[in-house]
Design a binder for these strands. Structure first.
Lengths: 214, 214
DNA sequence: GACACGTTTGGACCGGCGGTCCAATACTCG
DNA sequence: CGAGTATTGGACCGCCGGTCCAAACGTGTC
């Protein structure tokens, strides 16, 4: 007879371990996640968790999938793509470590979740064949790229000082191309932009490109 | 008097260290890069390199910037954007570790190089103000996202077996949406696609989106 | 009710990592 | 040629992920 139930009342479980992992990542960031911290948080020994999780990579992938679990979108396909993309962006804003994790492995559950959601919306848009896989690839890669950049930006420059210095330098690079005041203006805009709005503008550029190629 | 020359004939230099780093990364991948490996490759002790490089992160950033150093594009702006994007893609194909590195920190020199190049082309396309920074952000994020996914895909599934299994599963997800044979076809296409061509198709979707919004 | 047996636990242990430190070295300049 | 300094390289530190196994624990049996 196969026994599925635990043999202890205070049993560890994969779910409890993943929840603890998410808490630690949120509190201490990716560098703060150590298996020692996880086991300490669970008040157990380090050998115990290897009965439930293969290694640290699997733990990270499971945590990322947990954070993105609730995402979905119905109704108008364009709106549903926007909603999905914003859902990912906001989740990463709350849990910046997810941004880096999504770039780490294209074959992990969380990334597959994104592909599936975007693929379904594109299908409802009427795309098939190469057009659908090209459009899906473009959108998924844009979303994942923007997510990773936004997340690591937030991690690297939580204070605005370094961020402003960098954007000033970039603005100078751009302005150097010529002396057009308009060029300087667009460079200066980089300093003031709202990441979330800019992210959505990017989604709209891709949606417009998909429509015009169709 | 300020002494700029080295005091030894066989002097270590930042350039020699970065070159050794690139060689090790190409040969052994990101996990194979240890400061111990670098110093062994240079036949020196581990303390020596800290006079030339602050830490491992700086070494990685310098290595990535070295690989992307030669990129540029003149002439027709659209062609120059395609050439720049393909140049990045091909560089990452040769040096997969660059893909992950670019996602790690938006403020590193290599990423700024990409921003500058794309910004210049968009300027020649006649974009200014918000349109230019939105378009730049979208394109940079797409390129970096695709680069990271392509690179880690190559790293995770160098044999085709796991890759095909994953794409089959994704195809099943997509096909599940309905029983349309066309839907199945587009899912099946995922299995056979050429990453490089699909990457370029994404750039073209973006360029079409820019034109139609303009 | 007790006992035997498979499952789960947790802490000791391992090799290897990034980074620091400082005596010894190898050079340049006066 | 000697003084003084920039550079070197190996010992050392604390910490990491992962392995291992004796002890603790529940369950099912008799």
């Amino acid at each position: 007879m196969i026994r599925m139930t635990s043999r202890r009342s205070d049993a560890l479980s994969r779910e409890r371990i993943v929840d603890a992992t998410i808490e630690i990542l949120d509190a201490a960031g990716e560098d703060g996640l150590t298996l020692r911290a996880v086991t300490a948080h669970l008040a157990t020994g380090r050998g115990a968790i290897y009965h439930h999780v293969a290694n640290k990579d699997e733990l990270l992938a499971a945590a990322a999938d947990g954070v993105l679990a609730g995402l979905a979108g119905d109704g108008d396909p364009r709106e549903s793509i926007r909603a999905l993309a914003l859902g990912i962006f906001d989740a990463i804003d709350r849990h910046p470590w997810v941004g880096a994790q999504l770039s780490r492995d294209p074959f992990q559950p969380a990334v597959r979740r994104i592909w599936t959601g975007i693929g379904a919306s594109l299908h409802r848009l009427g795309l098939t064949g190469k057009a659908r896989s090209d459009a899906g690839s473009a959108l998924v890669n844009y979303v994942l790229g923007a997510a990773a950049q936004h997340a690591s930006g937030a991690r690297q420059a939580p204070d605005d000082a370094a961020r402003r210095a960098y954007l000033d330098a970039l603005a100078a690079d751009w302005a150097e191309q010529d002396d057009d005041p308009l060029a300087r203006e667009s460079a200066a805009l980089l300093r003031e932009h709202d990441d979330r709005a800019q992210f959505l503008a990017g989604v709209d550029i891709f949606l417009a490109g998909i429509s015009s190629l169709n």
